[in-house]
């Protein structure tokens, strides 16, 4: 019982993942600044922002459904924290690894997005509603290629468990080369999931103020911000576990360090992407995903089926 609580609340659960998420946000913001030839924030800035928000007043709009408005951020945070339990961090197996956990992680990562939608919808502000509708529209565009690209890697490994996928690719690293398209597709989809430029359409500040988060303030906004950071770390961890699984079969300490470096690398790639592109429109984003990204993901799936049929 105590062990489970330790896993859930301290390591690798809430406490660790929050610290890691804030570190991830720092890396993202610092790199973003340096790419733009600026100095960027000091290391404690994400933490300071979080504490500042936690200390501020929560304002609930008169027309909003107060219970839903307050509950939704907690749902989102819970789902994001829960997903880290199934991500391998210092060995090829996660704490509660079971066949099918890759699908569970993908689903747990969808819940925050749905919570953003509901939070925006129940705050009844016009900007928030437009933002939440955009969140949902965007969800349908990137979720399909994300699932397909992750699952095509799983198809090749012939398993629905992250542990087996990691073990398979570690013993047959040659097969990883075929997953290149899947890696690119999943990175694009992750950009959409994290609502980062060029896909920050749901919270486009110059158009709809802050999208779903327009009416949120204080602690509730802090929870949402933390959720986004945790989602970023978990998403990056999932991609690095599946597409660059090296090092996880080492002894725990080096394996853990290598994993952290890999996650930061994926985050760095995400911040590079958001530096060099302009924000797309929602119709352009949906078009782009269904016209180019989905066919790419399908190609990846086809390639992996063919390889599996011929070589394995």
């Amino acid at each position: 019982m105590i062990k489970e609580l330790f896993y859930l609340l301290i390591f690798p659960g809430f406490l660790f993942i929050s610290a890691f998420a804030l570190a991830g946000e720092y890396i993202d913001r610092k790199l973003y600044a340096r790419f733009q030839n600026r100095v960027g924030p000091p290391w404690f800035q994400p933490l300071a922002d979080l504490i500042k928000l936690l200390a501020k007043e929560d304002i609930v709009p008169c027309d909003a459904n107060a219970n839903m408005f307050k509950l939704v951020p907690v749902f989102a945070l819970t789902a994001a924290v829960a997903s880290i339990i199934y991500i391998p961090l210092w060995q090829s197996s996660s704490i509660y690894s079971f066949p099918g956990d890759v699908i569970v992680v993908l689903y747990l990562l969808t819940i925050p997005t749905l919570c953003f939608f509901m939070g925006g919808w129940y705050s009844t502000s016009l900007f928030a509603r437009i933002g939440s509708v955009r969140t949902l529209t965007q969800l349908f565009a990137y979720e399909v290629p994300l699932f397909m690209s992750i699952l095509s890697a799983a198809v090749l490994a012939d398993s629905w468990s992250i542990k087996d996928i990691v073990n398979f690719y570690n013993s047959h690293p040659g097969y990883l080369l075929f997953n290149g398209i899947g890696f690119v597709v999943s990175m694009i989809a992750l950009l959409g999931k994290l609502e980062k430029t060029p896909f920050d359409i749901p919270e486009a500040e110059t158009e709809i103020v802050a999208g779903s988060f327009t009416e949120y303030s204080g602690r509730l906004l802090a929870i949402f911000r933390l959720t986004l950071d945790i989602e970023m770390v978990v998403g990056a961890a999932l991609i690095s576990a599946i597409f660059i699984p090296f090092g996880l079969n080492f002894s725990p300490v080096p394996a853990f360090i290598i994993t952290v470096i890999k996650i930061e690398l994926v985050i760095a790639m995400l911040s590079l992407a958001r530096t060099i592109f302009a924000r797309l429109r929602i119709d352009q984003m949906v078009n782009f995903c269904w016209k180019y990204v989905v066919p790419l993901a399908l190609t990846q799936l086809l390639i992996n089926f063919l390889i599996k049929g011929f070589f394995r």
């Binding site: 733009q36 030839n37 302009a278």
Partner: peptide, 13 residues
């Protein structure tokens, strides 16, 4: 203009 289309890098430069 860069900022309005979400291209903050252009703004900074």
């Amino acid at each position: 203009a860069g900022h309005e289309i979400g291209f903050d890098t252009l703004l900074m430069y």
